[in-house]
């Protein structure tokens, strides 16, 4: 018998007492009454707790905020689906130096190239205020998983409409089969004396720009 058949047979044999399939009680919170500013406030509080940097902006002020955040940074990567207009201000500051590198289908940045890049700017799919979690699902404004991983600084744009209060609300908005990265603060470890230290292999700086409206 091959291993597959053997293992399935062993498992069926193990269950020969035919245990009843239990009902799954889902009495936990599946939705919350929170909305608007409350969500922004909660998400901000939780992100700051992880030592992320948080900037809350009106939509029109985002290009300016990005320009300020990218001031003094070398080259930075953006996924092809992020609106060009977001970088109008930063481009103007650059004077055409071409710091912005786009990762696009057919024009992929190699790992080596990404390793030489200082920062990445992406959008996000959905956020969970209660846990301070931002979820990326590789949509065109977020790009391939690798681009938000290798550069040492991640600037992440979260639109207010993406913010949910609790995890079940967030997951209902997602397609589980897309590659996902859930991000809760900069990379961290608790491996030495169980003390949390920010900054290991993933981006050591996480800047979150929350866009109102």
């Amino acid at each position: 018998m091959n291993a597959r058949a053997d293992i399935l047979d062993r498992i069926r044999s193990a269950l020969r007492d035919a245990p009843a399939v239990p009902e799954v009680p889902r009495d936990y919170r599946r939705s919350s009454g929170l909305g608007g500013e409350e969500l922004i406030e909660l998400l901000t509080d939780r992100l700051l707790d992880y030592k992320a940097n948080v900037f809350i902006e009106e939509a029109a002020a985002v290009p300016q905020r990005l320009a300020a955040l990218l001031e003094g940074t070398g080259r930075y990567a953006v996924p092809h689906g992020l609106a060009e207009s977001l970088f109008a201000e930063a481009d103007a500051h650059d004077g055409g130096s071409g710091r912005r590198v786009t990762d696009a289908p057919g024009q992929r940045l190699s790992v080596e190239e990404l390793d030489g890049i200082d920062a990445v700017v992406t959008g996000s799919a959905v956020a969970v205020a209660e846990t301070g979690t931002i979820i990326l699902d590789a949509a065109p404004d977020q790009g391939r998983r690798v681009i938000s991983l290798v550069p040492d600084r991640h600037i992440c744009i979260v639109r207010a409409g993406e913010i949910t209060a609790i995890l079940p609300e967030a997951l209902r908005r997602l397609d589980g089969t897309r590659p996902q990265t859930w991000i809760s603060g900069p990379s961290a470890t608790s491996d030495i004396e169980l003390e949390r230290v920010e900054g290991v292999h993933g981006p050591r700086t996480l800047d979150v720009v929350i866009v109102r409206g």
């Binding site: 089969t177 590659p179 996902q180 990379s187 169980l194 993933g202």
Partner: peptide, 21 residues
Amino acid sequence: STGERMNPYTSLWTGVTPDDG
């Protein structure tokens, strides 16, 4: 496990995603 509201990173993948990973 770590006593955090959420761990810093969770990755999900479903088989192969062309051009990603």
